[in-house]
């Protein structure tokens, strides 16, 4: 029995016991979700289009926020790795800011940008920017110095050193920084959508609570996890594995 059939069997067993437990114990249906109820809610929501709309608007936000964070994080990471002064001045700040849960930026964002898309974009950017910057910085500073010397002996200019040695050399660490940044950005977005109500999966979650529809609450949670895992495994995972396998750092 391989690991996937084991997992599947265990899952089916747990869900069956859960379903039976809720059905036959007389527990309040508006407090305790059932697997069948959650599945029905997901299917209904997808067919009705509400969840597709919510997923779509969350997707647009995370994509825009992540794109801004990736560009800014790459620039900040290069600056931190390349300049000692920048490292001494901003290094501790970057680590300190990363320790702040990004949702704590929301009150500030609302003061600055009002109840607008820009406020939520700001929270997403702040959530992922520093993970990306630190990933880029670490990838570059951990590069073997010998590779830099190869560039020097071949007479590369400063710019060529960056594009032909530093960035390709640091690519695996940059990718894992991007992956972590994306996942932090996704969490920030969900938190933001919960507090500052507008379209999106976060809002669907909140509506579930307001309607006392425990199945909807759980259904949206499942969707949030599913989308997060999908992007993490499919988009980042595949690229990362390919890059590492090419360099002999992971099995192909």
């Amino acid at each position: 029995m391989n690991v996937w059939s084991k997992r599947l069997t265990a899952l089916v067993l747990v869900l069956a016991v859960w379903e039976a437990g809720v059905k036959f114990s007389g527990a309040a249906a508006w407090l305790y979700p059932t697997p069948s109820g959650v599945v029905a809610n997901i299917v209904g929501g997808l067919q009705g289009g509400e969840y597709l709309l919510a997923l779509g608007s969350s997707f647009v936000r995370i994509t825009a926020g992540f794109a801004i964070a990736a560009v800014a994080g790459l620039a900040l990471g290069l600056l931190l790795a390349g300049s000692r002064t920048a490292r001494e001045l901003f290094g501790p700040v970057a680590i300190g800011v990363q320790a702040l849960p990004s949702i704590c930026w929301l009150p500030l964002a609302v003061l600055w940008f009002g109840l607008s898309e820009r406020a939520i974009l700001f929270v997403v950017v702040m959530g992922s920017l520093f993970s990306i910057a630190l990933g880029v910085r670490d990838g570059i500073t951990q590069l073997p110095p010998l590779l830099g010397r190869v560039g020097q002996t071949f007479g590369l200019t400063r710019w060529q050193q960056i594009t032909r040695i530093t960035l390709p050399g640091a690519l695996p660490a940059i990718l894992s920084g991007l992956k972590q940044g994306w996942s932090f950005g996704w969490r920030s977005l969900m938190a933001g959508e919960l507090i500052y109500v507008t379209k999106g999966l976060g809002k669907s979650l909140l509506i579930g609570r307001e309607l006392n529809d425990v199945n909807q609450v759980c259904a949206v949670m499942v969707l949030i996890v599913a989308f997060g895992v999908l992007v993490d495994r499919l988009a980042f995972g595949v690229i990362e594995r390919r890059v590492l396998a090419k360099r002999g750092l992971a099995p192909a």
Binding site: L146, L147, R149, V150, T153, F154, P168, G169, K246, R247
Partner: peptide
């Protein structure tokens, strides 16, 4: 041109 003790090929 320097040839180092390690081959220092670019792994990518």
């Amino acid at each position: 041109l320097v040839l180092f003790q390690e081959p220092a090929l670019l792994p990518w």
